[in-house]
């Protein structure tokens, strides 16, 4: 009954686990730990406020300004440390929101089937295909760009992937013998979902949370880079935007301490979360481990 539509087939693009995933996961945990420390002790670590005119324009890195200053004379290192907050906040909120919406949609669709499932999956198809960045730019510009607002918007746009995965798993669980036995003993849908389906999906939910979180970090910085963001809230994307907006950036050596650090920070956080994901998948997915040995 389903058409072999574009988005329907869930493509097998899972990353195969390579040896060294454990080391990578440890490195990922360490990097995220550093980011959490930067959030907790940001006010002590940042020697200046984000918007404070701390020195003269475009000072090279020194003992006082570890990453130099930007065009206005603001301390880049302090901005970078304070920008960790919005990044981690969005990783948590958008990641959790994506999984929550995707989980509710996916589990309900997989359990109840019928027209409900068909409609939800059509909406999912549609949302997978539509270009999300221009839509986020439009809605973000309309709704205002605080990190929390953007996190909700990201969650609202990116849930379909998680929904699809969780629906497929719910479908297969639904046919399994223990669930059918429970139905035979008279368990209603509420009972079934609470006692059999949701607990069985918990690990998969974690596995979906991780890519959603890393995608959200990359997306938030990208949105701020394109100008959707609260200019008073320090963010990595905001530093990048200011740097690229300066016409003489690449004529002076300023790009080395102004443009590169926020990019490296975004990439490191995204890669760290991804590494944790690869490591976790190995732990969480028993089938992968059995194949390797």
């Amino acid at each position: 009954m389903t058409t072999p539509g574009l988005a329907l087939a869930a493509p097998a693009t899972r990353v195969p686990v390579v040896t060294g995933a454990g080391v990578g996961a440890a490195a990922g945990v360490a990097l995220v730990g550093v980011a959490i420390l930067a959030v907790l002790f940001g006010d002590q670590l940042a020697t200046f406020r984000a918007t404070e005119l701390a020195g003269s324009s475009l000072e090279a890195p020194s003992r006082e300004h570890l990453l130099g200053t930007n065009l206005l004379g603001q301390d880049v290192a302090s901005q970078l440390i304070l920008g960790t907050r919005s990044s981690l906040l969005v990783a948590l909120v958008a990641g959790a929101g994506t999984v929550l919406v995707g989980g509710i949609v996916g589990i309900l669709a997989g359990w109840f089937r019928g027209w409900f499932d068909a409609t939800l999956m059509r909406v999912t198809d549609l949302m997978l295909v539509i270009p999300k960045l221009p839509l986020l730019l439009l809605v973000g510009a309309l709704a205002g760009g605080s990190a929390l607002t953007l996190a909700f918007l990201i969650a609202l746009l990116f849930w379909p992937v998680a929904a699809r995965v969780l629906r497929a798993q719910t479908l297969s669980l639904r046919g399994s013998t223990h669930v059918r036995a429970a139905t035979g003993f008279g368990a209603g849908p509420g009972d079934q979902l609470r006692r059999h389906i949701v607990p069985a999906l918990a690990l998969l939910v974690v596995a979906e949370f991780i890519p959603a979180a890393s995608r959200a970090v990359a997306m938030l910085a990208g949105l701020a880079f394109l100008g959707v963001g609260d200019p008073t809230e320090p963010s990595w994307g905001g530093i990048m935007r200011d740097a690229v907006a300066y016409r003489g950036l690449f004529v002076t050596p300023a790009w080395t301490w102004w443009l590169l650090p926020p990019i490296v920070a975004v990439v490191m956080l995204v890669v760290a979360i991804t590494l944790i994901g690869v490591g976790a998948e190995r732990r969480l997915n028993p089938r992968l481990g059995r194949h390797r040995r």
Partner: peptide
């Protein structure tokens, strides 16, 4: 894993 804008900047 590397976002497009980061790849482009690099």
């Amino acid at each position: 894993a590397v976002p497009e804008y980061a790849m482009a900047s690099l």
